[in-house]
Simulated assay, not measured.
Amino acid sequence: MNKNKIYWFLQITGWSLYNCNEIFAYSLQYGYDNTMIFNALANIVLAILLTHIFRIVVKKLNWIKLSLAQLAFRVCFGVAIMTVIVVGVNLPLDAKYVGELLNQKPILVIEYFINLAKPLLVWVLIYIFYNYSEEKRQREIEELKLKSSIKESEAKVLRAQMNPHFMFNALNSIRALVLEDPSRAQQGITQLSNILRSSLLADRRKTVSLKEELRTIEDYLALEKVRYEERLQMKWDIAPETLNIEVPPMMLQTLVENAIKHGVQKALNWGFVEINTSTAKNKLYIKIRNTGQLQGTESKSESGGFGLKNTAQRLDLLYGNEASFRIYQEDNLTVCAEIMIPLSNTDNRSTSSEVKSVASAVVTS
């Protein structure tokens, strides 16, 4: 049953029951009379007509969006007008029963007016409360939709901002190979192509599997190995059950890039980057450890640097307070970035062979 049918059912049923109660009360006091049925039918039709007109006015003039004071004034005014009309109709209809009493004590007209106003006021308050609740619920839904749309737009902007910065570093790595080792340069172009494909998918998807993200990191590290050679060492500690878990695309790659730029690049002899993944208490934990110290663009805060701010923002947009990110100085020579992501119902099972396929391309000195 739709809302319109429910409305008319409640209108007819409610006013019919109310007037049946009035017939019963009048019968006990004055004795039953067939004219009471006619009076009741007249009041049912009148009450439905007046309250329906009131409903039309409320909707057309959009009273629900008014302030409480403005709404209260209009409600009182509307109830007063409807009551005057109902009193004007009922005075001649009830003259047979209460006419003599009202003539003897005209002050009782006020009580008569109040008694007829009560059901109208109750109807109006119920109707206003229901519509106010519906309006509030609709506003909340619209706000949620708007916030969701804004967050999605912000997430796309953040992903788009990463791509030029990443491309610049990747192309620099390939450029070093063009004259020295053309065959490796071709391989580097293939690796860059893989990275670009992942980057394009990142603009279309909110999340990718951790396995896909690690493959992108493999290609990136292979290109960086050209620049740093023996200075770059890579360590992997990937839990098998984490490979199919969904993560924000290009997020880990950004942190690895940050680790190399602010850690390995500044190391005197050699540096390392280590990726560790595990699950506990229905959460995914990712650690990226690297040689270095928190300073310069990274600062000593947990949100310094573009890549770090980007990571924190994207996690907040996707998971809210359920996810967390921090970066800290683990010891004098090691920086650690930690990410915690809540697990969904996505199947995160994997086989040991998948871990081997990811770890087979580990870049070590």
Rank of each mutant, 00 (worst) to 15 (best):
M167A: 09
G263T: 02
A176T: 07
S193I: 07
K60Y: 09
D331W: 02
A72I: 11
A312W: 00
R55T: 08
I339Q: 01
L343H: 00
E230Q: 05
T216V: 14
I327Q: 04
I37N: 01
E274S: 11
L93K: 03
T83D: 10
K266N: 12
N290H: 06
L252I: 14
Y30G: 12
L252H: 09
L93N: 14
S324N: 12
E338W: 05
N194Q: 13
N62F: 01
F24H: 11
W236A: 09
N332H: 13
T83M: 09
S198E: 04
L294C: 05
K225R: 15
R137A: 14
K118P: 00
I56H: 03
E298P: 02
Q186F: 05
A72D: 03
L61F: 06
I150D: 10
S209T: 14
L308P: 04
A80Q: 01
V247H: 01
Q293G: 00
V157A: 12
F113Q: 04
Q329S: 07
I107A: 14
S352K: 07
L50S: 06
L284F: 04
L121R: 09
I238T: 02
G88W: 02
S27A: 15
P182I: 07
L93T: 10
Q161D: 09
P164N: 06
I260D: 08
I150A: 13
K3L: 13
V58Y: 07
Q29I: 15
L121N: 13
T83P: 13
V89C: 13
E180G: 00
K309Q: 12
A40E: 12
L108H: 00
T254I: 08
L201K: 12
S199L: 11
M82A: 14
Y7V: 08
F77S: 13
K151E: 15
M340A: 14
Y130P: 06
L268V: 13
V355A: 03
N163W: 01
T279A: 05
N21E: 09
E298S: 13
N310F: 04
Q11C: 12
N194C: 09
T311V: 06
E135C: 10
Y112R: 12
N282E: 15
G304Y: 01
I327L: 03
W123S: 14
Y7C: 02
N244T: 07
Y18H: 11
R184Q: 15
K283C: 02
L41K: 00
W63G: 11
S173G: 08
G188A: 02
A222D: 04
A95W: 14
M251A: 11
S183W: 03
V355G: 10
Q29K: 15
I114P: 02
T242S: 12
V273E: 00
F306V: 12
A337W: 03
T254N: 09
G78F: 05
A361E: 04
V358S: 08
T291C: 09
R314D: 01
F24P: 03
D237V: 06
Q313R: 12
P249M: 06
G296V: 03
